[in-house]
C-alpha cells in the first residue's frame, strides 16, 4: 500500500477522492467513514498510480466498496491492512474485463463502452424485439426557437452507469452483493452476465416501459424501482444469446 503522503507522482491527489465519493459514507462522524475512508483512498490511489492511463475515475469507489466491505467484515479484529490488500487484488481482478470502460480514449474502440452498449442493445433485441423497438422509437420533442426536433432514446442514457459501475449505484448494498454473487459464480464471465442482468432489468419493468414515454421511461430507468431481485436473476438466466455472440474478455 502506498504511504500516506505519497502524492508526489502528480497522477492523483488524495483530496481528489472526496468524502462524497465514498459510497458507504453515512456522515463524517460515522464508524463507516472513520474505518473505511483511509483504506478506500489507499486502494484507489494505488490503482491510479499503477494505471496512469486511466487514473481515478469517479464511480470506481462504488465498485470497490462492496469488496472492501466484505473483506473488512470478515476480518474483524485482525489487521485491517489485510482487508485493504485483499480488496485491492479483487478490485483489479474484477475490473480486468471492463476497466477500458473507464477510459475515455477507448470509448469508441472495440473494448470501449460504446461497443459494450451496442452488444447490450443486441441482446435486448434478440430477447424482446418489441420492447427494443419501443425504446428505440421513444423520442422527445425539443423546442429550439422556431424549430422542433426529436431526441431519441439511447441505451447510453441509463445503461452507461449500470454497466460501468456493475450496478452499484442502482441497488442497496445487500442487493448488490446478491447480484455480484450471481455475476462471479457464472462461468460465462462477469461482463457477459452483467449484460444479461441489465437486459433482465429492462424485461422486468417491460410493462411500464411499453406504456411510458421518453421522459417517464428515462426517469424510471435512471431510478430503477424496487423489484424482486431473484426474479430478475431468473430472467437473466433464461435469456437467449444473440446470433453475433458477444465474447468479452474476462479472466474471472
Amino acid at each position: 500500500m502506498p504511504g500516506r503522503d505519497n502524492e508526489a507522482g502528480g497522477l492523483l491527489c488524495r483530496r481528489e477522492i472526496s468524502n462524497g465519493d465514498h459510497p458507504l459514507c453515512l456522515g463524517n462522524g460515522s464508524i463507516w467513514n472513520q474505518y473505511f475512508k483511509e483504506a478506500m483512498r489507499n486502494i484507489l490511489l494505488l490503482f491510479a498510480k499503477l494505471n496512469p492511463a486511466i487514473g481515478y475515475v469517479q464511480g470506481m469507489n462504488e465498485v470497490l466498496a462492496p469488496l472492501y466491505y466484505v473483506f473488512r467484515m470478515n476480518q474483524e479484529g485482525e489487521d485491517a491492512s489485510e482487508a485493504e490488500a485483499d480488496s485491492f487484488e479483487c478490485f483489479v481482478q474484477l475490473l480486468s474485463g471492463s476497466v477500458d470502460h473507464f477510459c475515455q480514449q477507448l470509448d469508441n474502440s472495440s473494448v470501449g463502452i460504446h461497443s459494450t452498449l451496442l452488444h447490450f442493445s443486441e441482446l435486448l433485441k434478440a430477447n424482446d424485439g418489441e420492447l427494443w423497438r419501443h425504446l428505440d422509437a421513444s423520442k422527445l420533442l425539443i423546442e429550439l426557437g422556431m424549430f422542433t426536433f426529436y431526441m431519441q432514446m439511447n441505451p447510453q442514457f441509463y445503461a452507461f452507469r449500470w454497466i460501468t459501475l456493475l450496478l452499484t449505484q442502482e441497488f442497496e448494498l445487500s442487493s448488490i452483493m446478491r447480484i455480484w454473487d450471481y455475476l462471479l459464480s457464472n462461468p460465462s464471465g462477469v461482463q457477459e452476465v452483467l449484460l444479461r442482468v441489465c437486459c433482465a432489468m429492462l424485461l422486468c419493468v417491460r410493462h411500464e416501459l411499453v406504456c411510458g414515454d421518453f421522459i417517464s421511461n428515462l426517469k424510471l430507468l435512471q431510478h430503477y424501482p424496487e423489484v424482486d431481485l431473484e426474479h430478475v436473476l431468473d430472467v437473466a438466466s433464461h435469456l437467449k444469446t444473440p446470433v453475433s455472440s458477444y465474447q468479452p474478455y474476462s479472466i474471472i
Binding site: 459510497p23 469517479q58 464511480g59 462504488e62 447510453q156 452507461f160 452507469r161 449505484q169 426517469k219
Partner: peptide, 12 residues
C-alpha cells in the same frame, strides 16, 4: 450531504 458522483448524465 452524501450525493454520489454523477456518472454520465441524469435528468429531471
Amino acid at each position: 450531504f452524501e450525493t454520489k458522483s454523477t456518472i454520465g448524465v441524469e435528468f429531471a
